[in-house]
Simulated scan of single mutants.
Amino acid sequence: MKHASNRWNSVGMYALLSAIAVVMLIPLVWLISTALKSPTEDLFQFPPRLLPAQPTLENFVNVWQTNPFGRYLFNSTLIAVLTVGLNLLFCALAAYPLARLQFRGREVIFTAIVTTIMIPFQIVMIPLYVLAVQLGLRNTYLGVIFPAIASAFGIFLLRQAFQGVPKELEEAARIDGCSELGLWWYVMLPSIRPALVTLAIFVFIGSWSDFLWPLIVLDRPEYYTLPLGVATLAGTFSLDWRAIAAGSVISIAPILLFFIVMQRYIVPTESGSGVKG
């Protein structure tokens, strides 16, 4: 009886999760369907048609040819990749001593860092803009990147991961004469690879989809990211929802691809399995 009950509980859980997944996918399917519909199809007919009657790529071609989406794609990719790399580097450097080293004020520093998570970006937006202008970072890639090169969430996540690494690994590395930086690079980082990948996914998605800060710090179209490029479609095509949908699909496709590629690395691993030889 207990086995049957557990089985039905599992079936119910999978059914619930499947229903939630379907509900979450409906907007994405509708967006892709709108992007594939021909100009002769009514987007607002009732009852609504989920699948296009005559699928066409004309909307994607028009958007790509009329707007410099290749440049927007390059800008977003460069900014997202640099943001991920710098965020992982600085967060890992900050989290390691907060997790493994003993020094006065460690907990106070960590508490102060975590507390900043509760501060909305809109509060620090104006000081950041003033600082960016004073540093000459307006209309530059670095100007878009620098507010996100480290994050309190990233430091918190990696600190928790560093604390889970067995002390035996650390002691063995020290006995072998490994320096503090070598211990961080060759032992600690490989041991927390799932946490690093998780943080990379969060940072990539946040950087790729960020609209507010690039809108503030950029006013030259050659530096626009994809979200800003999609926003320009509303004026360029006078609210042509097919074109806007096509631009949105182009914008979100790299996020989905990045997540699909990286999710295989988010798996529990033995702490010692990732140590480099």
Rank of each mutant, 00 (worst) to 15 (best):
L239A: 11
S238Q: 15
F46G: 03
T232K: 10
I149P: 02
I216N: 06
L88Q: 06
L215G: 02
M262H: 03
I117C: 07
V217I: 12
S248Q: 11
T115K: 12
I79D: 00
V249E: 00
L169F: 11
S5H: 14
I123C: 00
A234I: 13
L215N: 13
L89A: 10
L25K: 09
L78H: 02
F60M: 07
L181K: 14
K2T: 11
L233W: 01
K167A: 14
A150H: 07
P190L: 07
S191F: 10
F204K: 01
A99Y: 00
Q102R: 15
L43P: 02
A173D: 07
N62K: 15
M188D: 02
T115G: 10
I145D: 02
L50M: 14
P166D: 08
W185R: 15
P48V: 13
M262D: 04
A4I: 15
G136S: 14
V130A: 09
G272K: 01
N6A: 12
L228E: 04
A95L: 02
P190S: 14
L233Y: 01
L78T: 08
L82R: 06
I123Q: 03
L228K: 02
M125K: 12
V23I: 12
Y96I: 03
Q45G: 14
A234H: 11
R138Y: 13
L142V: 12
L169N: 08
N139G: 08
I255Q: 10
V61A: 12
V197P: 01
I205C: 06
T66N: 11
L82Y: 05
T225A: 04
F90C: 08
L86H: 06
S273Q: 13
P268C: 02
E180F: 12
T116E: 06
A231H: 08
I149F: 06
P120D: 05
G85D: 00
I192A: 07
A231P: 05
P97H: 08
I126P: 00
L89Y: 09
V203I: 07
L43G: 05
Q122A: 13
S151F: 00
V187W: 00
G70P: 05
I250P: 01
R220Q: 15
G164V: 03
Q122D: 06
G277E: 10
E270G: 12
V63S: 03
I260K: 05
L78K: 08
P127C: 07
L233D: 03
K276G: 09
T111A: 13
L215M: 14
T269E: 11
F237N: 01
K2H: 13
G164L: 09
G164A: 15
W8V: 15
V203G: 00
A53W: 08
P221G: 04
W30E: 06
P190Y: 10
V187G: 01
F258L: 09
A152N: 05
